[in-house]
Each structure stands twice: as structure tokens, then as C-alpha cells.
Design a protein around this nucleic acid. Sequence first.
DNA 1: CGCATCATTGAACAAAATCAAGCGAGGTGG
DNA 2: CCACCTCGCTTGATTTTGTTCAATGATGCG
Lengths: 249, 249
Amino acid sequence: MDTLAALSPEHTRLIVKLDSNSELTGAEKRAIGALRLTIRTYGADQDVVRDGDRVDRCCLLLDGFMHRYKTVQNGARQIMSFHIPGDMPDLQSLYLGRMDHAVGTLVPSRVAFVSHAAVQELAREFPGIGAALWRDTLIDSAVFREWIVNVGRRSAIQRISHLLCELYLRFKVVGLAGNASFSLPLTQAEIGDATGLSTVHVNRTLQELRADGLIASQGKIVQILNWTGLQHISGFDQTYLHFRSRGQT
Amino acid sequence: MDTLAALSPEHTRLIVKLDSNSELTGAEKRAIGALRLTIRTYGADQDVVRDGDRVDRCCLLLDGFMHRYKTVQNGARQIMSFHIPGDMPDLQSLYLGRMDHAVGTLVPSRVAFVSHAAVQELAREFPGIGAALWRDTLIDSAVFREWIVNVGRRSAIQRISHLLCELYLRFKVVGLAGNASFSLPLTQAEIGDATGLSTVHVNRTLQELRADGLIASQGKIVQILNWTGLQHISGFDQTYLHFRSRGQT
DNA sequence: CGCATCATTGAACAAAATCAAGCGAGGTGG
DNA sequence: CCACCTCGCTTGATTTTGTTCAATGATGCG
């Protein structure tokens, strides 16, 4: 960590994230620290990248909360992932230059952009960084798989509690959730778009979760009252998040 | 292609696949041709890798048809992808050694195994190969995203026709579909497990597709009678498959 | 204070699941 | 060679889950 003292908080955010999933050497961290970042601020509910765009850079979420989504014919939206600070929501564009989905903010957010060329060069020169980034996209992919299961084979209450389990753990890992409660800046409509449910049904299902004593919520603050119960009802198993434990993959 | 003449058909399968998504140099192709492959044959409906396994090799489907799936609490299964010859269904295990899902055959299949160590070394020595493999996993990921949309926001008839559109195109690209018809070795139960529907409902929906003159089928042979109509009803847009066209990504 | 957004509620409706049989082709063993 | 068994497909009736429609509260922000 010594070498990080001189780095900008933006670079540090990225290094800490990658280092938490893979392990980086000092040289690798320094190389990342030299990346040229372009920083921009967005309001809530703004698109950062649109579906179909050709892009030559990818983004790193510094502060805020983002999502990736597609819109279908009848105007319905499906959210495919949520992103928290440290995530690179469109890292896949590195080798898939044409976007097949949109990326947008959910709350006011600060985003850093890095050019694909710079990242590709870094990955070539430092295979360890390449592996860390690759692994990052693979975890992304593992989460997609779990979401297919979530919308495909789980009931409404299971879908929503599964989503809460995932977000709670991911928030906790980056220090955004403490003491079984966290700020979840989502409307019920957005929860529905992520779980393939209607807003009305999300509302009723959340009431059920509260009535069952599994969660409580005031405003955007969600409190997990019964973590075991929540995992149990949703069939949650954190394996798919591939948190690194003691150097293991 | 000259250098490929001396290669085994197994190595050729892999080279042709990677070369079709990314572009490989002669040296890269030769290096892949030197990979040590362990070949094994499986019957239908057998697991090649089980959920939770720790693996140190990944597999390449040579002949047959495979799928990836998870099983949820109540015993229901969700299929997350189908794989055709040339695919590496568990390439993600390269950097996610612990499986978060199972990989199995649907028909008798022939599979080649390559050790992770060998692939990782290859990727480091030949960054172009690394990029091609990475890109392959990113396309995998893009398909997962589309499947989330499919099960999350499409009606039964849309889900099934979308699946048919995807499989038809993918089969066609590897020469397994010709003249608007192809062999789809899936039971209706398996189609249901892939689309998040019950077997009964899959049956009725297929009848609807036939009644609408969109497809015909005799046994496992599916014939696309109205390709435009099928794409239209399902909202199919092949962008997410990221086929390479003239060197574009 | 007033508007806009989000949460909540009730009632009617629709899509899909479930339950329960029957059917039919292919394979097997007597 | 044929009875029989299994697996997959098909059908009808019923039930469940979730959607849609239409309002009504609540909350927050300018």
C-alpha cells in the first residue's frame, strides 16, 4: 500500500478493486497509477453509454450507482446489472467495441474514462493486469448467469430477496454497507426491471418480506433483519460472486 | 490456411473458431496447434463438469451439443447456454477455478480438454491469442445478457422464437444449418429450462409458432418458414452475438 | 405551496403453472 | 416377432402467480 500514497484517489479506487479480486504486484499498481483518466460527473438517470454505440474507451465508476440495461420492443426495460464504485461497468467493450446494451446512472455519479488502447497496452505489458481485468469480466459474467436463474426459475419473493442478498454482500465488500443495513437507491420500478416483475408486484412482495420480518426499510435504507432467513428463502449461495479468499480463486 | 493442413482436426476446430471471432496470425495458429489435447467421449445427458468443482483445465466441444445449467432448491433446472462444436463452454474457469454451474452434454459428444496452465501460458506468450480467448468469453457474456432479457421481459412465444433465432444463426455460422433448417436436439422440457417456462407451455407455444406459419418441425429437425417474421415477433437483433464482419469487432 | 415522483391499494384480468391423463414412437427383452 | 416399457409429446381442466388498470396517499424538492 506504500506506493499508493502518491496516487490520486481515482487511481486508487481501481487498484484496490482489482487487487481485491486478483493480486497485483507493486509494479503493476504503479503502472495502473499512470493511466490517463478523464473524469466526468453525471446527474441521476443519465445514460453514460447508449445501446449500439461504438466506443473506444471504458469507464470506471468512482462514486454513485449505475446499471446496465436493454429496452425491448414494447418499451419495457430489463436491467442486467447494478454497479457500485470501483466497478468497470462496460469493461467488455474493450474487445466488443459495439455496445449491445446501455449503461446509465441511477443517482448522481462520478465516472472516470480510460481509453481502450491504453488498457490493452497495459494488459499486454503486464499480463498480471490483463488477467485481473479478464477475471473481472468473468465475474461479471458469473453474475449474469445467476440473474438468468433468478428471473428464469425463482418466484417473486425469491427474486427480490436474492437481489437484496447480492447487493448487500457487494456493498459490504466495498465498505458501503455496515451493520446489516445499507442505502439502496432504487425505486420499486427499478427493482422490477431488474427482476422481471411489475412495479405493483414488487411493492406487494416487499411488503411480504417486511411482514415476514426479513427486512425493514425506511426510505432508501434497507436493513437486513434476518440474514440467514433471507438467504434461505432465496436460495442464495455467494459462490457465484467469486470473492477472493486468501489468494484462492 | 496452408499451415493448418498438418494439424489435427481437433486443433483445427479451435483455430477456426477463434479465427472467426478474432484474427490470428500464422504463428499464433501454429502455437495453438501445439497444445496438448486430451480427448474424451461422452454419452447423452452426462455431466462434463459439476457445479462446485474445482477445475484446472477447460474443455473444447468437438462434436455434439452441450449446455450449462444450474439447479435450484426445488429441483428445477435453469439452462444458461447451449454450446455447439468449436465452443469452449467453461473457458471462464481459466480464471474462476471454482465452478458456479454445471456443464453437460445433451447428445453424445466428443470433448477435448486443455490445461489452464497451458492456455494461460499461451495467452501470455501470444497476446493475440489471449485477446481472442478473452473476446470469446466476452461474447459468452453478451449472450447471457440477452438471455436475462429473454426470460425477464419477453412473453413465452417471444422467448422461444428468440431462442430459435439465436440457435439458427449460431448453427449456420459453423455450417450446421443449411437452407433454413437445422437439427435441434432438444426436448421440449429442455427448451422450457432454457426459457424459464413449463414443458406444457412450451408445447403449446411451439404449436402456436407452427400455426402461425413461422416454423415447421419433424422430429428434431426445425425448419424456419418465415425468418423475418420470427425475428420480428421475438424482437431479435443479432448484434449481441458479435459476429465479426470484415475485421470489425 | 405545488408539482412530480414514488409507494400503496383494490379489483379485474391474463399468462403461465400445475395436475392428470392419454398417445405414440423407439428400443428391449422374452 | 411382439408385448411392454420408457420417454417425450399432446391435451383438457383447474389453479396460481403475477399483470394491468385506475386511483389514492406520501414524500420530497424547487
